[in-house]
């Protein structure tokens, strides 16, 4: 695969990924460009999820390296972030200039409310799609309570509930 292809494929993923890039990334990589099979992509993405950092960003590094080594990883990453960052700079400048404008502020308030609801919906969608066993549902609920209501620091939550979730999941596999 050519570097240009990697860059352009990922540029498409970045530019069309509204509200997150996970869905469009799978579409472009598996269905449209057929870089990887469904199974291989799930494997790469799964690894990207276990590692810290943005999942699709991690997957871009791994897919880029797999096809074209270091330059491939750089090309895929650049493709993913370059155009969205430029758009974001323009939006940020617009917001700095007009964010307090009485015509713009209410619009931003409406968008912020929609974005908040969207995140809750996304979490519920992910949760229901996984169909986790009851003990893992409880782990998820504990993370929710710890994050939103107890406002515990993230390291405490991740280091406390992460190993618990892993242990419960491994235990179920053995049972």
């Amino acid at each position: 695969m050519r570097l240009r292809e990697l860059f352009l494929g990922y540029a498409k993923i970045g530019l069309l990924g509204f509200g997150g890039v996970a869905v469009i990334a799978r579409h472009v990589i598996v269905e449209e460009r057929r870089w990887l099979s469904e199974r291989d992509y799930a494997e790469v993405l799964g690894l990207g999820q276990v590692l810290p950092g943005p999942n699709v960003g991690n997957a871009a590094i791994m897919i880029g390296r797999r096809f074209r080594g270091l330059t491939g990883a750089l090309a895929a990453t650049a493709g993913l972030y370059a155009a969205p960052l430029c758009i974001l700079v323009l939006l940020a400048m617009f917001y700095d200039a007009f964010g307090q404008d009485p015509h713009v502020a209410p619009v931003m308030r409406g968008i912020a409310a929609a974005a908040a609801g969207m995140v809750i919906g996304m979490a519920l969608k992910m949760g229901t799609k996984l169909k986790p066993p009851i003990e893992l549902v409880l782990v998820g609920a504990a993370a929710l309570v710890a994050g939103a209501f107890l406002r515990l620091p993230l390291p405490v939550i991740v280091l406390g509930l992460g190993p618990l979730g892993i242990w419960l999941s491994l235990r179920r596999a053995r049972a």
């Binding site: 986790p132 609920a141 993230l154």
Partner: peptide, 20 residues
């Protein structure tokens, strides 16, 4: 299995983000 144990934590945290 490790992934399956971690994802619920992530989902709970995402829901917490939305609520905040």
């Amino acid at each position: 299995r490790v992934e399956r144990g971690l994802v619920p934590v992530a989902v709970g945290l995402i829901a917490a983000s939305g609520l905040l």
